[in-house]
Design a protein around this nucleic acid. Structure first.
Length: 558
RNA sequence: GUGCCCAUAGCUCAACCGGAUAGAGCACCAGCCUUCUAAGCUGGGGGUUACAGGUUCGAUUCCUGUUGGGCACACCA
């Protein structure tokens, strides 16, 4: 029999054919195939008949009859039923489901890779923290969500570039340099002369010490040696940026996140990109002069008021280099760009898009995409920890990794919808007990590893097992979940919602744990044993593939 | 005051672009280890999906308003 892997699209095509026959005029209607919540409603369901009821002016059940009669034959479908108000429920043959085991074992680490992106170039910009201090929990959420999103999009067939953009020249960097310089002179934040906005964290003293000691620091994108001269502001600025960038790189590495490209805001100025962008915006006719400033008519593109581009002092406002930066992204050939950032930056979306539209060079309206994550509140000892860079009191990403572990931290931060605010309870996550959902999934994987190790046979031989023996409700549930996996990747990629993967893996682990408790695998009957081992080996493969996308390890033992 | 996001079990969160009886975990109650890992499993109680309207065969989902929480509202970045 033919092997079908994507049942949803297969069934969708069958209905498309039936639709052309039953209602040729309505052929453009969207065919939605869904997984019913109840087992008795079949493996897949279609609501097409109900959608057609109005245009055809017939009862849904009559239309369902006609659709079923026109449905082309398929050897993966066992039976088709009409239910409820006019749902068409489809049941797959056992053989069609059982074939998934072979498919998973055969594809191995590639199972779940789909061709949605068709190799097109896509860029995800995330974290993008300015080098003025250590990464905090909010950056951690960005790192976890962004990196997982990259992994998912890669699995979905996109050619993904991970990019980190930072400002190495603005007012905050000046502030940073000043704070380090004062520390070099032995002045501390409790001194009355300490500037209002100066950075007060202890790490500033570390930077100063290293600079005075003429240490050499090497970040992923730069390398500098401290000069040890208190009055050389350029050297201090350089050193401080490199030092803090290196700290961030170390944190990110410990968090299992790596970037392909680092972009500097200063480069946009030094390479003339900002000037060029301004020139183009003026030429396109969407700007005007008023009150000695240059304005962009962003209201032409949905903004609620126009924005200043060039201030009266001649400097540009922050969104101008942002537009220049995105123009560069466009020129670099990214069909799709996704910016993952904190929700506190949401006001830039309209301005950047408006600027790109104003350039009038054919950039699509909704380009680039944004994923904004809401704030993270940290709870420690039952109390909220206030985050303040200036005061130097906040929970760093490093603190979390050290206390909670990389796996759990990544899971916690990525397993929620980015749109909802997140409470990170350190004490809860720190307690190495069963409260931590990531252990639940890892435990399932470790259990399977142990069983396979105890068996000790050649795993490749499992490909020859008789999958027809996989018949129990537990086995069927596992089969169906493994069939769903590629669809989860597709949804997560399309909705830019990596948390779906985390929830899926919990379901998969739950199905396995139930199975584990209900039946034994290492039984005397050789055929049954091989079939069951093949099934759980496939389940472990899917868990391992999914955990890898989350950036979480899949341990053999726990 | 204006704009964006959110509101689902006591707590932390799901719900496949409008579907069938709204689901998990934690906590609570009752069971399951001489067997491949009990970091597990099985069963139970717990809901007017913030509130009020509207759209239709059908709404947690879409629209309007109200309430409550978060964020952003400079010629700061």
């Amino acid at each position: 029999m033919s092997v079908v892997l994507n049942f949803k699209s297969h069934i969708s095509e069958l209905f498309a054919q039936a639709l052309r026959e039953v209602a040729p005029d309505a052929a453009q209607i969207d065919i939605l195939i869904e997984r019913p919540k109840q087992v008795s409603h079949g493996d897949y369901a279609c609501n097409l008949a109900m959608q057609l009821a109005r245009p055809l002016r017939k009862s849904p059940r009559d239309i369902a009859q006609a659709l079923i009669a026109a449905l082309p034959a398929s050897d993966v479908i066992e039976k088709v039923e009409i239910a409820g108000a006019g749902f068409i429920n489809l049941f797959l043959t056992k053989a069609a489901k059982q074939a998934i085991v072979h498919a998973v074992l055969h594809a191995g680490a590639c199972y779940g890779h789909i061709h949605l992106g068709a190799g097109r170039k896509l860029q995800v910009e995330f974290v993008s923290a300015n080098p003025t201090g250590p990464l905090h929990v909010g950056h951690g959420r960005g790192a976890a969500v962004g990196d997982c999103l990259c992994n998912v999009l890669h699995a979905a067939g996109w050619n993904v570039t991970r990019e980190f953009y930072y400002n190495d020249a603005g007012a905050q960097i000046e502030n940073l340099m000043r704070s380090v310089q004062l520390r070099c002179k032995g002045i501390t934040p409790d001194d009355p002369s300490w500037p209002e906005g100066g950075y007060r964290g202890d790490y500033i003293a570390d930077v100063a010490r290293a600079y005075m000691a003429r240490e050499t620091v090497e970040a992923d994108d730069q390398r500098t040696t401290g000069k040890g001269e208190v009055d050389d502001e350029v050297a201090i600025r350089h050193f401080a940026v490199a030092y803090l960038r290196r700290e961030q790189d170390l944190d990110l590495r410990a968090f299992n996140v790596e970037f392909d490209v680092f972009s500097l805001e200063s480069a946009l100025y030094s390479e003339g990109k900002v000037e060029e962008t301004v020139g183009r915006l003026i030429a396109s006719g969407h700007t005007y002069e008023q009150d000695d400033a240059l304005w962009l008519r962003t209201t032409d593109f949905g903004d609620d008021k126009d924005r200043v581009m060039r201030k009266t002092d001649g400097g540009y406002t922050y969104f101008v280099p942002d537009v220049a930066y995105h123009l560069e992204k466009w020129r670099r050939g990214f069909v799709r760009v996704i910016n993952e950032q904190g929700a506190d930056h949401h006001s830039t979306i309209t301005r950047v898009r408006a600027g790109l539209q104003a350039l009038d060079i054919g950039i699509p309206k909704g380009w680039p995409d944004y994923v904004l994550h809401q704030m993270v509140t940290v709870l420690k000892n039952g109390e909220e920890v206030k985050i303040s860079k200036r005061a130097g009191s906040y929970v760093t990403l490093r603190d979390l990794i050290d206390e909670v572990g990389c796996d759990a931290t990544r899971y916690f931060l990525a397993a929620r919808h980015p749109d909802s605010q997140l409470v990170f309870d350190i004490d809860l996550a720190k307690s190495k007990t069963n409260d931590n959902p990531v252990y639940y999934i890892q435990y399932a994987h470790a259990r399977i590893s142990t069983v396979l190790e105890t068996w000790g046979g050649e795993r490749l031989s499992l490909l020859q097992a008789d999958f027809g023996l996989l018949d129990s409700e537990y086995e069927t549930a596992l089969l169906q979940l493994m069939i769903d996996y590629p669809q989860v990747i597709e949804s997560a990629a399309q909705d830019l919602a990596p948390h779906l993967l985390a929830f899926y893996l919990k379901d998969l682990a739950a199905a396995f744990h139930s199975y584990y408790n209900a039946s034994r695998f290492l039984v005397d009957d050789e055929a049954v044993k091989c079939a069951r081992l093949a099934l759980i080996a496939a389940a472990a493969q899917v868990m391992s593939n999914g955990l890898a996308l989350l950036g979480v390890s899949a341990p053999e033992k726990m």
